[in-house]
Every structure is written in C-alpha cells, then in structure tokens.
Design a protein around this nucleic acid. Structure first.
Lengths: 206, 206
DNA sequence: ACCTATAAACCAACCAGTCGGTATGCCCAT
DNA sequence: ATGGGCATACCGACTGGTTGGTTTATAGGT
C-alpha cells in the first residue's frame, strides 16, 4: 500500500471522527482522545498528523465542506435545466437528507462558528469561508432564475443565498432544541414558499 | 438593606456575568472563575449560590428569557391595534436591537442549545422551553392576523412562529461568521418580506 | 540505514468543585 | 438590652481528575 495513501487513510479517519464528535458535543467539549477513540487510533498518531486541536478543527471544516460540495454537486436536482427548479430542488433535497441522528445531518460549520467566533479567529474565518462559498454557489442559480423570471426583484442573489443559509442554520438549532428534524423540515417548507413567491412575477411585492 | 435583596444582588451579578461570558465563549469554554471575575465576586460565593456550573447555565437561561420577555412586552410595537402591524413591528424591533458587539445582541438560548443539546439534557430542555414559549407568543399575533387577513393560509400560526425563531437564530450564526449584524439585518428583511407576502390575500400562493 | 506511522507513558496546566474559616445580622431568652 | 445560638453571605487556598500536548520507543517499508 502506498504510504501516502496510508497517511491519507488515518488522517481521514481522524477527520471523519472529528465530524461526528464535534457535531455531537461542540468544539470545546470535544477531547482529542474522544476523536482518537472514534478513529480507533492513538494520541501519538493524532499529533503526528495535526499540530494542535485547533488545526484539526480547521481541517475538519475543510473536510466537511468538501464532502458537502460533492454531495450537492452530484445531487439529482442539479440536472434540471431551469435554475428555479434547481433552487427548489436544492431545498427539497435538503429536506430529504434530514435523516438519522442530529449529528448526522447538522452542519459542522454552524456548530463551530457559534462557539468559536470570538475565541478562535482562524476557525471562525474558515467556517465563514465555507458558509459563504456555499451561499455563493446558490447565488449562481438565484441570479440565473432572477434574470429569467423576476429581473426587478428587490434583493440581490447574494443576499438571498445567504438568507437560505440563515434558514438552514437556524433550522438546525431548533432541531437540536426539539430533538428531531421535523421542525427543521417545516422551516424549509416556509423557505420554499418564500422562494416560490419571490420568483412568481404576479405575486412579487416591492 | 434587606438580606434577600442582597442575595438577589449577588446572584443577579453572577447571572448577568454569565450572560456576557457564555455568549462570548460558549458554555463549555466558560470557566466559573471567568464568571466570578466579571461579577466581581469569588468562587466561594459562586458555589454558595449555585450548586454547579450547569445549574448556573439553567438559571442564566431563565434570567435571559425573563429579560427578553420584559423587553418585548414593553416594546412600542405592542401598542399597535392591528396584529399584523405588531408582527412586522416585532421584526423591525429586532432589527433595531442589533447594536453593540455580538455578545450584546445574540441569543443565549441558541448558543447554549447548539453546544449542549446532546451532553446536557437539562440545559437543552430549558432552552427549548424558552425558545418555544417565545415562538408561542408570536403565534398569538400570527393567529389573530391570519384570522383577519388570510384565514386559509397553508400554515399554522405555531409553525410560522417557529420559522421566525429559526430565521433569528440562523441570522445570529451568520452574524458571528461575518463578525457583524449586517447579514442578520438582511435576513430579517427577507423574513419581513415573506410575512408581507403571506398576509396579503391577493399574493397568497397555495 | 532511514523515514513514516503508530503506540504508550508521561507532564504540566487547568479548572470544577470542596472546605475551613470569617463576618454580619437576626431571633429570642434572660 | 444583651449576649448566645444560628443562618446566610462570602472568601480564597486547596484538591483531584482531566486534557492538550510531548517524549521515547518500535514496527515496517524502501
């Protein structure tokens, strides 16, 4: 086996373990040894691959964002020709992945940035980068749909993309409070309804 | 000075300090001694008033919710006769209180529940209780406005009240990521626009 | 021989919670 | 009115478990 592939394997184990543990307990309460236990490796190996716990958090954020990018890039709704259909497809798709336990579907970036925004600037910056880039991805479809259906709508594509992120992040908080995805799904339905109204010229308010 | 008032003073100092520190650093990263330092009191006094850090968190959540209740109960928009005007007034009012630093205007409940939902069931339950009760307060105005303007709208008042909480909580996450309230205010503008469309009979989609 | 990955024992700092003690004020019996 | 008993508020040194990070050692591939 290629040694760089071996490294890759162990590092990936740590990163996957970090996703799971941090999304359950938050960044601060996550112990390096928790991550090692879940990864099935030891601290010696951990500090061979990461120079600190904070570096793990940043790498985990990158790892998470890369996974999310692949997930959405390969989702079936992407094949729709109509940008609005893709946008609504995105919301429906997000509703569909609210499965399993809370750590399975909540967002690592939102979890970490809430805790670390003031105390760990590097983590905050990384979470911001990925959250914003996800919103920008949405903004591309939004811009296309806006040009096609409601060119005079009173919002920018960027702003609406960020609003979609806002709803998703808030939905996870309520889901945690209520211990289940139903309230999150219901919020996504409201979001979908908002998008429908905004892209329907007849109904479009000021 | 009344001794019970004295107790009240010190306990309140701890609670106010906890609001500030936990909203900056999160629950886990908050050290009891941080709270003591901000309160200007000592650990001995702290553990005289609270039996554990977790009990502080729960008391702080209650304290925060009570403050918020007073704040919104006495806000000027409450005087409007029209329930829809009160609802939109609420959103505008929330936009208006996005002032100062992030710990000044973000929500203790959302911050704590995100971190503690899995590890501290009692904290989770308390946060849920207050978040839900705030949403229920909104749902009262929503129900009145729905009856008056859009009795056949396709959502329940409870669901829309929770959605408003969702947007607010998500807005704080984005504000933390981007280090300022602008993105939160922009999300509240989208929320306001959604409310306007949903309470305008002509524009109301299925 | 050398280098990477992993292991395991170890260390020093940190921190929630404890404990012995002081101060203050109230109640009530004398 | 006074002094003893008692409860409450507070202090700050201390403790014991925890945990991020280090060090030393070993296995195995080249």
């Amino acid at each position: 086996m290629d040694p760089s592939e071996l490294q890759h394997q162990s590092k990936t184990k740590f990163l996957d373990a970090a996703l799971q543990v941090i999304r359950s307990k938050g960044y601060t309460a996550t112990r390096v040894e928790d991550v090692c236990a879940v990864a099935g490796l030891t601290k010696g190996s951990f500090f061979h691959h990461f120079k600190s716990k904070e570096e793990l958090a940043i790498a985990a954020a990158d790892h998470f964002a890369a996974m999310a990018d692949r997930l959405f890039a390969s989702a079936p709704y992407q094949r729709a020709e109509d940008p609005l259909e893709r946008l609504l497809g995105y919301v429906d798709f997000r509703m569909g992945i609210l499965r399993g336990t809370l750590p399975d579907y909540t967002c690592l970036l939102g979890t970490m940035v809430q805790e670390a925004y003031d105390t760990h600037p590097a983590i905050r910056a990384t979470c911001d980068k990925h959250l914003s880039s996800h919103a920008t991805m949405l903004a591309r479809d939004i811009a296309e749909a806006k040009a096609r259906y409601v060119p005079d709508a009173p919002w920018t594509p960027e702003s609406l993309g960020l609003f979609m992120q806002t709803v998703i992040q808030g939905a996870f908080i309520l889901a945690k409070a209520k211990q289940g995805p139903e309230v999150a799904a219901e919020s996504l339905r409201h979001l979908r309804r908002y998008l429908e109204t905004q892209f329907t010229p007849a109904a479009q308010g000021a």
